[in-house]
Design a protein around this nucleic acid. Sequence first.
DNA 1: CGCCAGGGCCATA
DNA 2: TATGGCCATGGC
Length: 213
Amino acid sequence: MDAMDIYRRLLNHFGKQDWWPVEHGFRPREFEIIAGAVLTQNTNWSNVRKALKRMERAGFLSPRAVAEAGSKQLEEAVRPSGFYRQKAERLKMLSQFIESFGSFGEFRKSVTREELLSLKGIGPETADSILLYALGRRVFVIDAYTLRIFSRLGFRQWDSYEEWRKFFENEVLEDTGLYMQYHALIVEHAKMFCRKKPLCSSCPLADACARKA
DNA sequence: CGCCAGGGCCATA
DNA sequence: TATGGCCATGGC
């Protein structure tokens, strides 16, 4: 059983996911995806949605608007997503960084993963989510769930995002659309089966998983 | 009421 | 390098 077999099982069980950039059947602007990637750090998506709505109402859904926004107004808009002071600051720094490219097109074309990671508050998962979901780069997004699940499935024993990311990018030679679906499916699987009382009996990966509960 | 979410930073040892 | 505390709101 390889990584594509796992993908097919998850897709068969959960169906296609309505994650970015196709949530609610409309295509959000790239900056909306970028803001969501920051706002969702350790945060339920329903709270992120509230914050994005407030950002929209306040006119903060563009890099320039956020880069020039007053800190208090930005914090107030972002508040429902939690950690709101940090997140307002991170969004502001990130927006100023985007602005420094001169245009969003230039940012999309030439920004590197290392540059994103060098920004305070942008770690591996946030950077990779931006690169994949907002910029369409073929980057496999790794999160804590991915490490747990694929370790239990007996793939490898690494514990670093970097090693797992390279593994998937060499193992899964597909397009960015599949990468988007795959990460979303992994998260859905974790929410459904690997939280609190594990529901391994109905898990589509149970037969291959080392964890028995 | 307590738990925790589509993380990441920083201090400490 | 590896844990642990911290950030904070809203849903259940």
